[in-house]
Design a protein around this nucleic acid. Structure first.
Lengths: 196, 196
DNA sequence: AGCGAGTATATGATACATCCTATATAAACC
DNA sequence: GGTTTATATAGGATGTATCATATACTCGCT
């Protein structure tokens, strides 16, 4: 379960509270992972019970106390072992593709609306990635470049897959508009692509 | 929850048993959805309780009886309404990217092994998609072309995203081999891609 | 004082997926 | 007869994510 390891990974950089972790998840990895508050606190408790993290209470002056977690040596060992293990295959679940699979039941206008909504969503996501890149670039002088490589690699994945998905959606709309969305056309295109 | 709607979608084509559905999931949609037996049977029961499907017992000669489900008019209405609704945003969870995000903790050789394992997995998946395409092509004369469009569209998505992912992984390996996996290089490349 | 917003922690209830286990029918094989 | 395989149905236990709810502290504003 990668939530555990993502938390261990963040804590390997610096000690953090549950609240901090939630902010880190929302700010730096949401293009490939997410975690809600309930899951974060539960997982921290579990990691504590397993001896992979420990915590201290830190008083603040104008804020409530914080419960700051740090990773233990066995937590680091667990993280490093996991990082060096090939990633498990991820089962894909794409509601949009379910809709497109049964698209013979959809009116062309409804089909187009569904595809256009998805395209809009992808474009929004790409814009968000752009903002994350800009934020990293702005903060780069304060960071160790070696530590930036990982995050930038994940962003490049987000950008490349996002662009591919955007282009695919655009291609569908073009095919539909020219009444070229047909089985023979798709089959021929698929075979050509699979040979590349 | 799209498992319900995928099941309704299949049943909209023809009445099927739980066992048939499992085979359909494994043969025609596993590149974008999957369902295990327990989930299928549970969902069928629930759909039945909600009046969206009904079933009959069908005796067989050399096989156990089958419990064949068909979709009801209200089941079809539910399916069509759902199909015409824009797809929800899907939260991405990519264990590989967690590993790459914290890659500053990985030795270069271990990093490379993880990326190469993923590349191998993607290539296997692309080959599987090729087999599905070939099977569809072989069976195309027996099928209504209009009904094939949806499935072929989903396959084109699988192929395009698979190719993009493969190329991205290959690009990472090339960058690493030439010691060009650095923050400035990645930043520049990202910005260029985001402007395209 | 009360309200709203932000900081900060925590947990209950529910939904969904996965892994495990079970039963029954039938045929082929040793 | 027992085992294996395929057909066929079913449900328990567990893991993970999401939504909902709760409490407490602090500050600023009306």
């Amino acid at each position: 379960m990668s939530l555990r390891h993502t938390i261990l990974g963040f804590l390997s950089i610096k000690p953090l509270s549950g609240y901090d972790l939630k902010r880190y998840f929302d700010a730096s990895v949401r293009h490939f992972w997410s975690a809600d508050q309930a899951a974060i606190y539960r997982t921290l408790n579990e990691l504590g019970q397993n001896g992979l993290v420990e915590h201290e209470r830190v008083a603040q002056e104008t804020r409530p106390d914080r419960k700051v977690f740090h990773v233990t040596p066995s937590g680091l060992a667990e993280l490093d072992s996991w990082l060096a293990t090939p990633a498990p295959s991820v089962t894909r679940r794409e509601p949009l593709l379910v809709k497109l699979f049964f698209s013979s039941r959809l009116e062309p206008a409804a089909w187009r609306a569904v595809v256009e909504a998805e395209l809009q969503s992808v474009e929004t996501e790409l814009a968000t990635l752009g903002q994350i890149v800009a934020a990293i670039e702005g903060d780069a002088p304060n960071q160790d470049p070696a530590v930036l490589v990982g995050p930038l690699v994940t962003l490049s994945n987000g950008v490349e897959t996002g662009l591919a998905y955007r282009d695919w959606l655009r291609g569908l709309l073009v095919l539909q508009a020219s009444n070229a969305l047909s089985a023979p056309t798709l089959l021929a295109a698929l075979k050509a692509r699979l040979e590349s």
